[in-house]
Each structure stands twice: as structure tokens, then as C-alpha cells.
Simulated assay, not measured.
Amino acid sequence: MQAADADAYVKPGQRRAPASTLRSPIYPAKPSAFTPQRDDNSKMNATTEDQHISVVRQRLARRFPTMDSGVINQAIDTAHHKFDGRPVRDFVPLLVERAAIRSLTDDT
């Protein structure tokens, strides 16, 4: 790839890095340069996760109206605790709901 071709990958208004810092014309020398920096607004905080888990509780109560609420809450809590200490929290409510449904339908 020629230097002119490499410039095609540079966004308008963006400066091209010096050739000495590039592994190739496209990728920077350090992989950490491509690591996205996440701020508190881009990840799910505990309050939002708890709100989503509350919605999951309501949804499963409607889905299983004859089942005791304690059994439903136990299934949700068990599934939720499986994700304790995991760094990515964005999909935890969805995964908890799926695991709880699986647990509740296997028990019946």
C-alpha cells in the first residue's frame, strides 16, 4: 500500500500519524490506542441495572401468573448473582431474564 493509499483512511480534519509510529498505514503501533475509553455515561450503572431487573421481575410475574412470586424472585436472584464481579454489565438484565425463564420452565 502506497502512502497516498494510506491517506484515504484518514478522516477529513484528522492528522495522519507519523510513519514511525505505524505498524501499517491503517493501524497504530499500540493496540491500546484503539481501546475505547468508557465513561460513566456509556456503561450501565447499578441504579439502571436494578431498574431493569425490576422490570424483569414484573414481566416474569405476568408471564407466570400461577407461580409463587418467591420462586420467581429466587430464580432471578440466582441468575443475577452469576454475573457478580463481571466488568461488562450492559446485557446482564437480558441474560438474567433468559436464565430465569429457563430455570422456571425447567422446574415446571
Rank of each mutant, 00 (worst) to 15 (best):
M1K: 04
T78Q: 13
R59A: 15
L94C: 08
G85D: 09
S20N: 07
P12A: 13
F91N: 15
A100E: 00
T78P: 09
M67C: 10
R102E: 05
S24H: 01
D39Y: 05
A19I: 10
I76C: 05
N41D: 15
L104W: 02
P65Q: 01
R16H: 07
K82N: 12
R23Y: 00
L95M: 15
A46N: 14
V92Q: 02
Y27G: 13
D106W: 02
A19G: 12
R57C: 07
D106G: 02
H81M: 13
A75Y: 03
N41W: 06
D39T: 15
R89W: 01
A99W: 02
M44W: 05
S32R: 06
S42L: 13
A99S: 07
P87Y: 08
D84F: 10
S20K: 02
I101T: 00
T21I: 03
Y9N: 13
R59K: 11
D84T: 06
P18N: 07
A100C: 08
M67S: 09
E97D: 10
A29C: 11
V96T: 03
S54R: 09
G70A: 12
P28C: 08
A75I: 02
N41P: 06
H52K: 14
A29W: 02
L95W: 05
R98V: 08
I76T: 00
T66M: 10
A6Q: 03
L94F: 07
Q14C: 14
D5K: 00
A46F: 07
T105C: 09
V10W: 00
G70K: 01
R59Q: 14
R63L: 14
F91D: 15
L60N: 04
E49I: 01
K11L: 15
S42M: 12
L95A: 13
T35C: 12
S24P: 06
S54F: 03
N73W: 01
A8D: 10
R102L: 11
V55H: 08
H52E: 15
D5G: 04
T48H: 05
A19S: 14
K30D: 09
R16C: 10
R16I: 05
D40V: 12
A33N: 11
G85H: 01
A8W: 05
P65I: 00
Y9E: 11
L94T: 10
D106Q: 03
P93T: 04
A6S: 06
H80V: 07
V55Q: 13
N73H: 04
I53S: 06
A6G: 11
N73G: 13
D40G: 14
M44P: 06
L104V: 03
I72K: 00
S20Q: 04
R98P: 09
Q37V: 15
A99F: 00
P31I: 04
H80I: 03
R38V: 12
R98F: 06
M67W: 02
V56T: 03
M44T: 10
I26P: 00
V88R: 11
F34T: 07
T48M: 12
N41F: 07
L104D: 00
S42N: 12
F83A: 11
P31F: 01
N45R: 10
F34W: 07
R86F: 13
R23G: 04
F34Q: 09
D40E: 15
P12W: 01
F34C: 14
V56F: 02
Y27C: 15
F83E: 05
P65A: 08
E49C: 05
S54H: 06
T78N: 12
S42P: 10
